[in-house]
Amino acid sequence: MTVDVDLPDHIRARCTELGDGVLYAVRTLARQLADDPRLGERAGRLGLYTATIDSDTFDACPPLIVRYAYGPPLLEADRVEIRDVEATGPLPHAGEEQAPAPAPDPRMRQIAARQVTEAWRRITGWLEQHAPATHAALLPGASTHEIGALERALGVRVPAELRALWLLCAGCEDAPGAGVMPGHGWALMPLGTVAASYRRHRDDQRQPGVGWGGDDSTVWKPSWIPFCSWSVTDISFGLFLDVETGNVGHWDDTSVRTVGGQTLSVLLEETADKLENPQLATGYLPGLIGGRLVWGPPLAADEAALWERFTG
């Protein structure tokens, strides 16, 4: 019997960053895991495994470590979720001289902030019409004073895109259906939770043995600002914005952190596109349970029985 293997969007983006052949190699591994989910080695915690990919097997692919979860207590018995992909050797063209990155253009930041504003208004317009319970869970926007206070608390300047979002909505209430972003319930974090999450991640750096062995994937950089979590109260999984690159990253309950290739404005625009054009949606699909948005199909059996896919 085969099992379902989930290759999340942020992992696909990570594979694309690592090299042209990485996504193909990881997809090949995913097909193998569907037949044999215990193919990898246990990673010291129930339900967590690591598998290796030899660079000689695939073109344009460095040697890789792939970390995944299988079955209870983290997932259903017949599911695998790939959670991290790490290169353990040189990347293709790693020895070639790279041109320095251009300085950020203030005009481009203004454009990105405008894109965030437009995409968020599309999202909230859809919620107000189709998922009023989720719309009601959104908090009002923060003031510039509140965002400034958060910047001082973190010691990091909030980029224009995230500032634009928080000026419109400063998080969600702790209520069913508060998750807006595609996934199993990504909820916007209130600013107080943002600060608490940031401090927790930074404090973890001072503790030995955190994560998967102290490699770079467990490091939390000062430039990473969390903004979404599994729920308002459960911050063991979440999304952060890398201030230096403008890209969205992901962390999980194993302390593994990865940065993808997607900006906040693109994330919001794709969310709005999935809601407005559900027939074209792939991956997590928009659905409804009692007036609240639930991306699915849900994993929990009770939610799955009530979930209705939104088709427009």
Rank of each mutant, 00 (worst) to 15 (best):
D6V: 11
P8Q: 06
R12G: 10
A13Y: 09
R14A: 15
C15N: 02
D20A: 14
R27F: 12
T28W: 11
A30Q: 10
D35C: 12
D36G: 00
P37T: 01
L46A: 13
D59W: 08
P62N: 10
L64S: 02
Y70L: 06
G71P: 01
P72K: 03
A77C: 12
V80E: 02
D84N: 08
H93S: 05
A94W: 00
M108Q: 15
R114F: 08
W120C: 13
W120L: 11
W126Y: 12
E128P: 00
A142Y: 02
A149D: 11
G155T: 10
V156T: 13
A160G: 11
E161G: 14
W166K: 07
W166A: 10
G171Q: 06
C172A: 15
A178Q: 05
M181P: 03
G192F: 08
A195Q: 04
A196E: 13
H201S: 05
Q207I: 15
G211V: 09
S217D: 06
S217N: 08
F227Q: 07
S229V: 03
W230Y: 09
D234Y: 07
F237W: 13
L239F: 03
L241H: 05
D242W: 05
T245Y: 00
N247L: 13
N247I: 09
H250Y: 12
W251G: 08
D252P: 01
T254S: 08
T258M: 09
T258I: 15
T258F: 13
S265V: 08
V266Y: 04
E270L: 15
D273A: 15
K274I: 14
E276Y: 01
Q279E: 14
G287F: 01
G290H: 04
G291R: 06
E303G: 03
E303H: 04
A305P: 06
E308H: 11
